[in-house]
Each structure stands twice: as structure tokens, then as C-alpha cells.
């Protein structure tokens, strides 16, 4: 019977980890190309509201797609400023977040107090009946499977394909990649927009499936946690998945603890994921040499061709 009570906790962990997986993988790709985008929170919010609006008229799948599209669009001003104009990446990312908070709240005023049906779980025949693992891994909404598919594709692409190699080369040494003839800025544009699309998808997942409601500022720092996760993951997709599940688990555990009526006040439990992020950053950044080893060498530095 112990196992049965574990199922909702583990399945919930995966559901809570999914937006972090999407946004984190997107930011990972952008950072691999040498661009750090602190606008993830804003792009997630824009994806959330756009996805919610689209889902109301055309259904949840359309909502997810539209959220991803909106996220990619939201990344464009950032990309233009930092890539074509070489502006400061930290400040431009922050502007993206502030703009995203404003824009999403502005559009979202029309959608407050609407509700969506969410997305039904799709049990994978056969696999879903495995004890414990079945209901946790193979009885989820299709979008959760999508997160794992994207993870697999990205991990393979980064490590094993020419595309991955070029992306990493652009992030490590844009000068060298430029000299060989790769279009550094175009590749970075692609990576940043991919990051935006993934953040938008994560946001749309929150508003159309996880909650499924539109609430002002509903991303609640998950975009920033995704940025921190990329550091925690040392820019490696597999570690990012692990980190996202860890945080998903933390979110679910604190909710469960609140449900059990633990003596700790709920507000203090709600602060746990944010405190955990700090602890994780402490642990991972402490060894400067190791951090430098994994850090894409040109991260945060603008590249102006021909200078």
C-alpha cells in the first residue's frame, strides 16, 4: 500500500518538472550558443497567456503550439538587441522579463476567470500497467512525453551530430566559427528563438494543463529557476532533467506537507523551492575551475563580426 501512495507524488513530480524541462532545455541551447537570456520568466508568461487564449478557442494542443510560437516571438527583441546591436545581455534579458510581465497581464485581463478542460492522460498500452513505474511514467498527458522526446532529441543532437558541434563551436569560440565560415549571428538567432519557443511552451503548459487557469504572474519564478537549473546542470541535458525532477519533487512534497497539515506554516514551505535553488547554486558554483570547464567560453559576450 506504501507504493500506491507514492504514485501521485511521483506522477505529480513529473507534471511539476515539465515546465522546467521545457524552459531549461531551451535556455541550455541558447547558452550553448554563447547567449545568456535572463528573459525566460517573461517569455514563459507571454507563452502562458497566448497559449491560454488560443486554447480557449481552438483546444489545448493548439494552445501549446501557439504558446511556443509566442515565446519565440517574445525572444526576437532580445535577439535583435543583443545579437544585431551587441547590447548587454543581462540588461536586455531583464527588459524582456519586465516587458513580459506587463504584456501578459495586459492581455490576460480578458481571460481572468475562464477555465480550461486541461489535457487527458494518455496511457501507453502495455507499459502503463507496470507496477509503480507504469502509472508514474506512462500515464501522463501527451505533452509530458513530448518533454522527454525533446530531451532525447537534444541530447543526441548536441553530443552526436554536426549541428550540435557547430552550435557548441559558436558558443566556445565565435571568432573561430566565423573564420571557418559559419554564420555565427544567424545560428545564435536560431538558438535564442528556440529558447523562446521552449519557454513559451513551458508557460503554455502551465496555463492550459497544469493549472489550467490564467492568473497574473502565474509563472511565479519558474523561469528564473530554469536559468539556475542550466548552471546546476553544468550545461548538460541529462543533468538538467535530473535537476528539473528534483525541483518538481520539491514542489509536490511541500504541497503534500501542506495537505498533511504539517506544523510548519504553508508560506514558509512555499519558499522551499527558492531556497533550494540558492543551495544548489552554492554547491555547484563553489568549484570555480569545474564551473569554468563546462561554461561555454563566450557566454554573455557580444560578437560583432569583422571587429
Amino acid at each position: 500500500m506504501m507504493i500506491d501512495s507514492l504514485v501521485p507524488i511521483l506522477a505529480g513530480t513529473l507534471a511539476a518538472a515539465t515546465p522546467l524541462i521545457f524552459a531549461g532545455l531551451g535556455e541550455l541551447v541558447a547558452e550553448k550558443s554563447g547567449v545568456i537570456n535572463l528573459g525566460v520568466e517573461g517569455m514563459m508568461l507571454i507563452g502562458a497567456v497566448a497559449g491560454f487564449a488560443a486554447a480557449l478557442s481552438w483546444g489545448t494542443s493548439a494552445g501549446l503550439l501557439f504558446g511556443a510560437f509566442a515565446g519565440a516571438l517574445a525572444a526576437l527583441p532580445f535577439a535583435f538587441l543583443t545579437l544585431s546591436l551587441g547590447a548587454n545581455q543581462s540588461a536586455s534579458g531583464l527588459a524582456t522579463t519586465i516587458f513580459g510581465i506587463g504584456l501578459s497581464a495586459f492581455i490576460g485581463q480578458f481571460y481572468v476567470s475562464h477555465a480550461l478542460p486541461g489535457m487527458k492522460a494518455l496511457a501507453i498500452p502495455g507499459l502503463a500497467h507496470i507496477p509503480l513505474l507504469g502509472p508514474v511514467l506512462f500515464n501522463q498527458p501527451p505533452v509530458v512525453y513530448l518533454a522527454f522526446v525533446i530531451y532525447g532529441a537534444l541530447a543526441w543532437m548536441l553530443a552526436r551530430t554536426r549541428w550540435g558541434l557547430v552550435l557548441r563551436a559558436v558558443g566556445e569560440s565565435p571568432e573561430a566559427a566565423h573564420a571557418i565560415g559559419y554564420p555565427v549571428l544567424a545560428i545564435r538567432y536560431g538558438a535564442v528563438c528556440f529558447g523562446g519557443a521552449m519557454a513559451g511552451l513551458g508557460g503554455a503548459y502551465l496555463s492550459t494543463i497544469y493549472t489550467p487557469l490564467w492568473v497574473e504572474n502565474m509563472v511565479a519564478g519558474r523561469g528564473w529557476i530554469a536559468v539556475a537549473l542550466v548552471v546546476f546542470a553544468a550545461w548538460k541535458p541529462t543533468r538538467l532533467m535530473f535537476g528539473a525532477c528534483l525541483f518538481g519533487g520539491m514542489t509536490i512534497l511541500q504541497l503534500q506537507a501542506q495537505g498533511f497539515g504539517l506544523a510548519v506554516p504553508s508560506q514558509l514551505l512555499s519558499a522551499v523551492p527558492y531556497l533550494a535553488t540558492i543551495l544548489v547554486l552554492m554547491a555547484i558554483s563553489r568549484d570555480r575551475k569545474k564551473l569554468q570547464l563546462n561554461l561555454p567560453a563566450s557566454l554573455g559576450k557580444p560578437f560583432v563580426p569583422g571587429e
Binding site: L81, A95, F99, G100, I101, G102, A105
Partner: peptide, 9 residues
């Protein structure tokens, strides 16, 4: 907020 973000952009 929208205006603030635009101003910084």
C-alpha cells in the same frame, strides 16, 4: 510594466 519594459528595451 509594459512601458517600463519598452523604455529599457
Amino acid at each position: 510594466w509594459l512601458f517600463q519594459g519598452m523604455l529599457l528595451f
